[in-house]
Lab assay of single mutants.
Amino acid sequence: MSIQHFRVALIPFFAAFCLPVFAHPETLVKVKDAEDQLGARVGYIELDLNSGKILESFRPEERFPMMSTFKVLLCGAVLSRVDAGQEQLGRRIHYSQNDLVEYSPVTEKHLTDGMTVRELCSAAITMSDNTAANLLLTTIGGPKELTAFLHNMGDHVTRLDRWEPELNEAIPNDERDTTMPAAMATTLRKLLTGELLTLASRQQLIDWMEADKVAGPLLRSALPAGWFIADKSGAGERGSRGIIAALGPDGKPSRIVVIYTTGSQATMDERNRQIAEIGASLIKHW
């Protein structure tokens, strides 16, 4: 067993022997301040990774656009098919120029040779490549099948209805392509620590998230040296922004954090800054 596999296998073990965790309302004060600064709703939840206990939450059962955070769930569904012998990570998928959609920095470079399922998941999570996500959605049967996968996990809230990039439209009061912070946090925890996926697939999923290259201005910008984070960000229309993450000190994750916002007129930089400040408060009061 590799060191990384050992780390993920012992996530519940280490967490069980940690000192009790206590909620700190100071972080919620910052979440509410972010709402004021952005002029928009902000949803927040913080779960203990081992027990699933909610440590703090704000608007945990209000719907927010998922945006690209759905790509972690998508690759979880792909990995479940791999575990069941219905898919192979090494299978190569070929596609054409007509398949390319807006923001496809990886797939646009491989029109000639195609990409493997493993490479597509890596591109979808680490670079948020939209064509990679659409190609992977095709392998599982489309958005409705991802929703069905989530329902089978016990998540009857999260739903995907459309493809990239239309799913980022974020129309107010439109339930399409949305989740709730509580539902997303619980589902992410199941994917990373539950028995739904094999140990190898859980490790692969967290490795992809740990290698995320496009979430630097968010929670990662607030992390002290030595902290662990595996995350996936999302951005959408109407001032929408979000991030889902597993993080913790001492090089291992111990909490799940989900943050979503929508309806702001603020710039992307300002949305990023507010999420980073929430992260800084979380870490300060850990």
Rank of each mutant, 00 (worst) to 15 (best):
P65T: 03
A34S: 05
H156K: 02
T147I: 15
E26S: 10
A235V: 12
K232Q: 15
V29S: 06
R255Y: 08
L74N: 08
G194Y: 04
T69V: 02
Y260P: 01
S281F: 13
L218H: 09
L219C: 09
L100Q: 13
D99N: 15
E87I: 15
P253F: 15
R255H: 03
I171A: 02
F228H: 12
D129S: 11
W208K: 04
A235C: 08
M115I: 08
R63L: 09
K252E: 02
C75Q: 08
S254Y: 02
L160H: 15
V72N: 03
P143E: 10
S51I: 09
R271E: 02
Y95K: 00
E175M: 06
A276D: 10
S233K: 01
S57D: 12
E169L: 03
S201C: 15
K213Y: 04
F58T: 11
S96W: 08
I140D: 14
T126H: 02
G43I: 06
I140R: 13
D36A: 03
N98G: 05
L205I: 06
L191C: 15
S128K: 01
L28T: 07
L136K: 15
V42M: 00
G39K: 12
V31C: 00
R81L: 08
G142C: 05
D33C: 06
A183C: 10
A211I: 05
L74C: 07
L282F: 02
L191S: 08
C75Y: 09
K252F: 00
L197H: 06
R255K: 09
A280I: 00
N152D: 14
P224G: 10
N134F: 12
I278P: 14
I140Q: 11
D36Q: 00
S221G: 08
K252T: 02
M209P: 12
E35I: 02
K190P: 15
T147Q: 15
Q88V: 10
H151R: 09
E210I: 11
R41L: 13
H110C: 12
F64A: 11
T116C: 00
L167S: 07
K109W: 10
T69D: 01
T186I: 13
R273L: 13
N168P: 09
D212Y: 11
D113W: 07
T147H: 12
G76Q: 01
D83Q: 02
G194I: 10
F70S: 03
E119T: 11
R238D: 04
G251H: 01
E61G: 06
S240C: 12
I259L: 06
N134G: 06
T186S: 07
T187G: 04
V31S: 03
Q204S: 09
G216A: 04
A133S: 03
G216L: 06
S128Y: 01
K32N: 01
L55F: 12
K53I: 00
S80A: 08
L38V: 02
R202N: 09
T138Q: 05
I275G: 11
G226M: 05
L100D: 13
L79Y: 06
V101I: 06
L38N: 08
T126E: 01
R41I: 13
L74V: 10
T147F: 13
Q274T: 08
Q37C: 11
P172V: 04
P60G: 11
S51T: 06
L146H: 05
L218W: 05
R238A: 09
G248P: 05
E164A: 14
A222H: 15
T261E: 14
M184H: 03
G194H: 08
G142L: 14
P143Y: 02
W286Y: 06
R271Y: 01
A183N: 13
L49A: 15
A211V: 05
T186V: 02
L135H: 03
L218D: 12
L74I: 11
I171M: 02
G141I: 00
L188T: 13
K30F: 10
D33L: 05
Q86S: 10
V157P: 07
E61L: 07
N50A: 07
T112C: 00
R202T: 12
P224Q: 00
S51R: 11
I93F: 10
P181M: 14
A182Y: 06
L247R: 02
T138F: 00
G154K: 08
G239M: 14
E277P: 12
Y260H: 01
E237C: 14
A211F: 00
H151T: 07
V157H: 00
G251P: 05
S128V: 04
P25D: 08
R118I: 13
K71Q: 04
Q97G: 05
E56M: 01
I206K: 14
Y44P: 13
S104R: 09
E102M: 11
T267Y: 12
H24Y: 05
P224F: 12
I54C: 05
A124L: 10
L196R: 13
G39Q: 14
V72W: 09
V31N: 00
K213Q: 03
E108K: 00
R59L: 02
R91D: 01
D83S: 02
L160P: 12
M268V: 14
L100W: 15
I243L: 12
S57Q: 13
L282Q: 01
V82L: 06
D33F: 04
G216N: 06
N173W: 12
A124E: 05
T198Y: 06
G141C: 02
E237W: 08
L196Q: 12
D177H: 02
A34L: 03
D36N: 05
P172I: 00
R189L: 10
P249T: 07
S233C: 01
W227I: 07
E237Q: 14
E277V: 14
G154Y: 04
V106W: 00
T107H: 00
G90Q: 12
T69I: 03
F228T: 11
S281K: 15
P143T: 10
G248H: 04
L205E: 08
T131Q: 15
R91Y: 11
A230Q: 03
T139V: 02
F149C: 14
L136C: 00
V101D: 00
N272D: 13
G279F: 12
K144C: 09
T126D: 12
H151P: 03
P105T: 10
E62W: 15
S281M: 06
